[in-house]
Design a binder for these strands. Sequence first.
DNA 1: CAATTTAACCGTATATAATCGGGTATAAAT
DNA 2: ATTTATACCCGATTATATACGGTTAAATTG
Lengths: 169, 169
Amino acid sequence: MNQSVKAKALDRIDISILDTLQKEGRIANVDLAKKVNLSASPCIDRVKRLEKEGFIEGYGARLNSGKLGYGTAAFIQVTLDRTTSDVFDKFREAVVMIPQVAECHMVAGGFDYLLKLRLPNMEAYRGILAQIVDLPGVAQTHTYVVIEQVKNDRGLPLKYHADASTPPN
Amino acid sequence: MNQSVKAKALDRIDISILDTLQKEGRIANVDLAKKVNLSASPCIDRVKRLEKEGFIEGYGARLNSGKLGYGTAAFIQVTLDRTTSDVFDKFREAVVMIPQVAECHMVAGGFDYLLKLRLPNMEAYRGILAQIVDLPGVAQTHTYVVIEQVKNDRGLPLKYHADASTPPN
DNA sequence: CAATTTAACCGTATATAATCGGGTATAAAT
DNA sequence: ATTTATACCCGATTATATACGGTTAAATTG
């Protein structure tokens, strides 16, 4: 009983709903129902359940980053000078405030944090790097500029397993 | 005239719509209209226009990856053995076929590709790494396992600039 | 500067979809 | 075998999306 809402195993219809919604988040419930071979009522009940149980966290429009002034992406590896808990906390607190930092991951192996940046162009990079370097505890950074997006996440590869029910938490 | 559909500059209402939709992709048009101080008709007209002009590429549900069996993330740096065009092509073609590869970026600086993986757990990593290493042209790899997600992309930091209209392509 | 054109908007009417309640069949439990 | 629970379908009601016609304001033009 660790979840706020009891979550039973997902059946193949649930998986199909999730898979459809992660690709077509604004599909009409009527159409979603057809797709998963249900009538409208049980279909929307399932969607509501999946939302309440936390499998669906929300919905969002996928925007064209290039057309909106964020056509350039870069990754920055960050190493902190001392690995004490409060240095980490201060860095985290500060880095999340920078809007251009799209993602920040704490990683094991060689350095401490991996940041993903979204920028209008390479000129903008200068300013952002200055900000990153001045963040509390930063010892050194290494930048990798993205030349080409070969594959871009369009959701989880969901599959239904009858045997071992979908791996929990 | 490089766009398939002529796209005029976005005004502050367009930006507000995009910003709302990237966070609440399934908001009712009526409510979206209220939020941006419009009535329903011009609001839905704008949304349709933003879709047609390609600012909005689609909609998707945000799923809880942990609860769906993908609680572990890792980044893999990949260096290819020869940097000829057909080696790159073959690698690309093969890497996109692996479902666990959520993202693949070609990068400048030190190595060639940066992959982001989504995995159920660390055991699954063994199998995937074997696949990656066996991909055509792969000379060496280096893995960074994500310990903690400090910040996770919730969309672009959109802002309206009256002066220089939103940076184009 | 007045007339015309254009663009964006609003309100209303209609079509479509979401939602709710009632009833049924199936499967599990007693 | 009976009861209970679960998941489903159907139809009625409510809400929302959409299409249409008219209005205003700004920009353009004579």
